[in-house]
Simulated scan of single mutants.
Amino acid sequence: MNLKDIHIGQSIKARVLELNISSERICKFMHYKYEESEIEEMYNSKSIDSDLLLRWSKLLEYDFFRLYVEHLILYSPKSRNSLVHTSALSTKKSLVFRKNIYTQEIKDFIINKIKTGSMTQSEVTATYNIPKTTVCKWIVKS
């Protein structure tokens, strides 16, 4: 899976094939709002509506939103502290995007890069801004 360039339709189709779910079951779960041809269109779509993605996540028992979070963790620009979204209302707290939450998929992705030789440990720490000690711990545990 390419986390840099996410094609959500391909990811959905891969999960459907993995679980061997029929088109009939998919259409039924979607309350017959979509026909088989529209389902195929979704498989070919690079992106889909978030409400629809939520339905796919429920049907396929997989958090497809996580792909985007993992992309943010790996590829968001480096900042002074963290990415902060300030509210228009000063009474509300700011929402903070934290890059230091690593999923198992992220850890596996990084470890695979190192084990296959496509990146060195130093390149990983420089490219993804992950502390060297953190990467070392992942390697020891793998």
Score class of each variant (00 low, 15 high):
residue 10 Q to S: 08
residue 12 I to M: 13
residue 16 V to D: 02
residue 18 E to K: 15
residue 18 E to I: 12
residue 19 L to W: 02
residue 20 N to C: 09
residue 25 R to Y: 04
residue 27 C to N: 12
residue 31 H to S: 03
residue 34 Y to W: 12
residue 35 E to V: 10
residue 38 E to F: 07
residue 39 I to K: 13
residue 43 Y to I: 07
residue 44 N to E: 09
residue 45 S to N: 12
residue 55 R to K: 13
residue 58 K to G: 12
residue 59 L to N: 04
residue 60 L to R: 06
residue 67 L to N: 06
residue 67 L to D: 06
residue 67 L to P: 01
residue 68 Y to H: 11
residue 70 E to N: 15
residue 71 H to T: 05
residue 71 H to D: 05
residue 74 L to P: 00
residue 74 L to D: 02
residue 81 N to K: 11
residue 83 L to T: 07
residue 89 L to K: 12
residue 91 T to D: 11
residue 92 K to I: 07
residue 93 K to Y: 07
residue 94 S to K: 15
residue 94 S to L: 03
residue 95 L to G: 05
residue 95 L to T: 13
residue 100 N to A: 08
residue 104 Q to F: 05
residue 104 Q to S: 05
residue 106 I to D: 05
residue 108 D to I: 06
residue 109 F to Q: 04
residue 110 I to L: 02
residue 112 N to M: 07
residue 114 I to Y: 11
residue 115 K to D: 04
residue 116 T to M: 02
residue 116 T to K: 06
residue 116 T to Y: 05
residue 117 G to Y: 06
residue 125 T to K: 00
residue 128 Y to K: 00
residue 128 Y to C: 00
residue 133 T to C: 04
residue 133 T to E: 08
residue 139 I to K: 12
residue 140 V to S: 09
residue 140 V to M: 07
residue 141 K to G: 03
residue 141 K to H: 12
residue 142 S to W: 01
